[in-house]
C-alpha cells in the first residue's frame, strides 16, 4: 500500500481472521499485519498466534504490537488498515513489533527505551 497513494482499502466484510490467537491480542483491522496487546503479557509465556505457538522473549506491555504474520525487511507495518512505518529487520510471526525493528517513513522516532540512566521511578 503506497504511503502517499491516498487510497485506503476498505476492510473486507465478515469476521476478522484471528483464528487460533490468544484473546489478549486485539486485531484492529482485517488487513493489519500486527495485533495490539489488550493487557500486559509477561515474558516467557507460550501464546497462540494465528494457530502457531510462540514463546514471548520479553514482556509485551499493554498497547504494544505483535506480528500477526512474518514481515520481511522493508515491508510496511499495517495497523488501522494503513501503513505506520517499515520493518528494519525480518520480523517473524509472534515477535514484538516496535522501535527496534520498525522505522517511520516520515521523521525518525525519538525514544529513551534503552537509556542506561533509566531510574527506579520509571516504568
Amino acid at each position: 500500500m503506497p504511503i502517499h497513494g491516498g487510497e485506503v482499502t476498505a476492510p473486507p466484510s465478515g469476521p476478522p481472521d484471528v483464528a487460533g490467537s490468544d484473546d489478549r491480542l486485539l486485531l484492529l483491522n482485517e488487513s493489519d499485519n500486527v495485533f495490539v496487546a489488550r493487557r500486559r503479557i509477561p515474558a516467557g509465556e507460550r501464546i497462540a498466534v494465528m494457530g502457531t505457538e510462540v514463546t514471548l522473549t520479553g514482556d509485551l506491555p499493554l498497547g504494544h504490537k505483535l506480528a500477526r504474520r512474518a514481515i520481511p525487511t522493508g515491508h510496511k507495518i499495517i495497523k488501522y488498515a494503513v501503513p505506520i512505518g517499515s520493518a528494519t529487520f525480518d520480523i517473524a510471526l509472534g515477535q514484538h513489533v516496535h522501535v527496534h525493528n520498525v522505522k517511520s517513513d516520515y521523521t525518525p522516532t525519538y525514544h529513551l527505551t534503552d537509556a542506561p540512566h533509566r531510574g527506579e521511578g520509571d516504568r
Binding site: K79, G85, K103, S104
Partner: peptide
C-alpha cells in the same frame, strides 16, 4: 509515546 507502544509518528 514509544514506552507506551507507539513506534512511529504515523502510528
Amino acid at each position: 509515546n514509544a514506552d507506551g507502544g507507539l513506534s512511529t509518528i504515523e502510528e
